[in-house]
Design a binder for these strands. Sequence first.
DNA 1: CTGAAAGCGCTTACAG
DNA 2: CTGAAAGCGCTTACAG
Lengths: 329, 329
Amino acid sequence: MTRPTLDDVAREAGCSAKTVSNVVLGRPGASAATRARVEQAIARLGYVADPSGRQLASGRTGRIAVVVPDLHQPYFAETAERLILEIERAGMSSTLVIAGDQESELRAVASAQDVDGVIVCPHWLRDDLFDRSPPSRPTVQLGSGPTRVFDRVVMGEYEGFRRLTSHLLGQGRRRIALIWTGAEGVAPEGARYEGYRDALEEAGVALDPGLIAFGSDWDRRASGFEAMIALLASGRRFDAVLCVNDAMAIGAMRALRMRGVRVPGDVAVTGFDDTVEGAHLVPSLTSVSPRTGEMAATAVRLLRERVEGESGPPREVLVGVDLIVRDSG
Amino acid sequence: MTRPTLDDVAREAGCSAKTVSNVVLGRPGASAATRARVEQAIARLGYVADPSGRQLASGRTGRIAVVVPDLHQPYFAETAERLILEIERAGMSSTLVIAGDQESELRAVASAQDVDGVIVCPHWLRDDLFDRSPPSRPTVQLGSGPTRVFDRVVMGEYEGFRRLTSHLLGQGRRRIALIWTGAEGVAPEGARYEGYRDALEEAGVALDPGLIAFGSDWDRRASGFEAMIALLASGRRFDAVLCVNDAMAIGAMRALRMRGVRVPGDVAVTGFDDTVEGAHLVPSLTSVSPRTGEMAATAVRLLRERVEGESGPPREVLVGVDLIVRDSG
DNA sequence: CTGAAAGCGCTTACAG
DNA sequence: CTGAAAGCGCTTACAG
């Protein structure tokens, strides 16, 4: 009553193990008649290939590691879900690594074990970390980040922020605040910021640095709340606020509601990520949707190519975004 | 420049592979001197054991499958996160399976491959499904569900609902509605319902079946919304609503806000699960916290015992809950 | 198109 | 306390 092995099937079918292996792997090298005999034997014995033997012999695990900083923030949960389903669709399995700090995030990439490759949604990684501990497996990065050593799938952050800003300007709003992640006083930079800046410039509206508020990002919702409280306390007037992501927008809306500011009447609020949570808020959150399905599929494709031996320099694929106008602005 | 193997280490240390294996596995059977030589050799060569060889030889993968219906509902995302971190703490790795329908949920349990055991948060499973396809690996169930074939870790659902109901009664509320999951007209049953019923009975308040509203549960938030719209449309008076979980409470609050009903002034609202999302709502959601950390740790412990050979009938561990009173009721 | 044999990198009785 | 050998269940050149 022990599990049947490849040899059992071979004996049952009257052929060699090699032939059974060929049939199981769907390879050529088996006449139709032999193939049929093997398939019958497999069905009769209820044979299922043992992954351990296969892994040891082939050097492939058929498994991909997905690395995210956490699962309690909707963006990462939804991204992980997309990736896992996409990996399964590709006939592989996955292992989800939750890397809650820089050390574990680095280890997940530099010491990946028991997987053919890694897809990482980075939070703390920087290029220089890999000088001493290079990735142990082919690695693809999903989402923005400061690293340039892997293949990258990036979302249209510039495009998204530019379109959000233009959309608010189109409503006649002129005092458009920005809720940003990072230390107070460190000037914003990067694609999202440039999209905001360029849209204002195009409309001839001066960018007021006093309208930029910072959240510390230990928790996205909490830091959006914190940033908005600070912005309100500053006494500056504003009629819209662009938040760097949905989670911070949710925190910001909470602060506005507590202070009795009406959304979108007094202030329009926008997010970025198009999370389910934002869609269910009242008022529902205007946001930018990053086409996460396409991003996940692209990340899996790039990684599989690397696993198959693709060398060459790091590649970058830019995936488009969609503006999702809802009730908040 | 190929990876060093156990034999390389043995040669370097001047001993047999078996001894190296003993040292790596932290087993007795190696003098202090030998152990030191082996450890030096390991460090010198940068040896890391290959999981494939280990798996094939030992019959153990060191990996546990975690099965959830999805990751975009906060309860499942947070539960998966807890489990994965707990599994890692136990020195094992995990593979997260997202089973979006009954067939894949059953397959994840009945045809688990390449793992030592399975922890499932069931959504569609029923006992009779396992008559024909029994679990292929030791399996533990986390959360309530209609199955009795595995070890189960269940939360204090009865206690939680009873305490929530008593809490609302203590505020003087008497018309306490219930937002439930399931088909219209199918009488509610189970621990949560009994907690509600018994608390009302204890207070001498008659249970009004007209105050029970049903959501179809294809999406929790959406079905909470749907159920509340129907309840409001029924014209029945109520001053509180107990929702079967946080996600449905979030949908219900959205409906109340849309209709201009004040929370908690006109109607108190409570959830169940204590999700981060509920805590960030305005007004923040009163809920019951299931001690998810303890549940996850218990599930992992039970499963490891089964993997180690524990036989015996299915066990059940009841984990307590905490009442979390916030602003919504 | 198919076979017999070697080998992937470990662990595990079996000896001593 | 340690060694030599067999074996886990596959795949992969090598032959024919």
